[in-house]
């Protein structure tokens, strides 16, 4: 007779309890974001500053990563493509792969690593040094000033970073094609544009907004709820990266199901 491992299940219950509690708190935090977002006063200057910090300053890292990604992907795909006798289709295949999946996901992960940890650490240190409390006392809405601007900036900037990352990645791919071949820049882009469709570009573009939103919300939540002093700051930064990365993959999984249902795959 099979005996249920009650003790083992019971040992996981606290973790499950914590997970569910945190999920609920993140949901409430997200709901608070939406309620605060529409209310005046709008922190436009802070939003632009956060966009600059989150978006523009992430460009070198994202650009470098995307360039290497395109180059390496092309070089590593070439032997297999040659084995099947379709090396001429390399631009088309790399183009679809980068624009549809690899570009958004990799850029979002890099973004989560840089911005998620940055927001988590920044807000965490503000929390443990009671700067947030001080803001509240001084009459400034800390949630609106710190959280809404950062989440909005992350949501708006990640799609732009994904687009520029795709462009740089395809440029790297063109160089990769030309390491062992001879394809003109114009021919490469013609092949890429001929192979991709709206159903490749639009779902990838739309899901990158959700990736950015997830990174922003998780980073802000972790930082905003940081405790236990400087140790908590590090933990907030770390868990912000881990949770937002997992969120990116979960959203990607949902997105592919939705596009499949809509017949866009």
């Amino acid at each position: 007779m099979y005996k249920l491992p009650y003790k083992m299940i019971a040992s996981y219950l606290p973790s499950l309890n914590i997970f569910l509690k945190e999920a609920g708190e993140i949901a409430r935090f997200t709901g608070r974001f939406f309620t605060q977002w529409f209310k005046p006063r709008y922190e436009i200057a802070e939003l632009l500053r956060q966009c600059f910090v989150i978006g523009y300053r992430s460009l070198p890292l994202v650009g470098l990563t995307a360039f290497i990604l395109g180059l390496v992907l092309t070089i590593q795909l070439r032997p297999s493509m040659e084995d099947y006798g379709v090396a001429s289709q390399l631009p088309a295949i790399v183009g679809i792969a980068i624009i549809r999946e690899i570009g958004p996901v990799i850029v979002a992960l890099i973004f989560a690593g840089k911005i998620g940890s940055s927001i988590g650490a920044e807000l965490g240190s503000m929390k443990v040094t009671e700067q947030i409390d001080a803001m509240e006392v001084s009459g400034t809405n800390p949630f609106k000033y710190l959280v809404v601007t950062r989440v909005l900036a992350a949501t708006l900037m990640l799609p732009v970073l994904v687009l520029l990352g795709d462009a740089v990645s395809l440029y790297g791919s063109w160089l990769g094609v030309n390491i062992r071949g001879n394809t003109s820049f114009y021919l490469f882009w013609t092949q890429v544009f001929n192979s991709i469709t709206f159903s490749d570009v639009l779902p990838a573009f739309i899901k990158s907004y959700f990736f950015g939103f997830a990174v922003g919300v998780v980073g802000c939540y972790k930082g905003f709820n940081s405790n236990k002093g400087t140790e908590g700051v590090g933990r907030s930064a770390n868990s912000a990266v881990v949770v937002s990365s997992v969120m990116i993959f979960l959203i990607d999984l949902l997105a592919v199901q939705v596009t499949d249902v809509l017949g866009l795959n």
Binding site: C51, Y56, L59, V160, L161, L163, L164, D166, A167
Partner: peptide, 8 residues
């Protein structure tokens, strides 16, 4: 930066 992304 934003214009570059949107242009692409």
């Amino acid at each position: 930066f934003v214009l570059g992304g949107l242009l692409f």
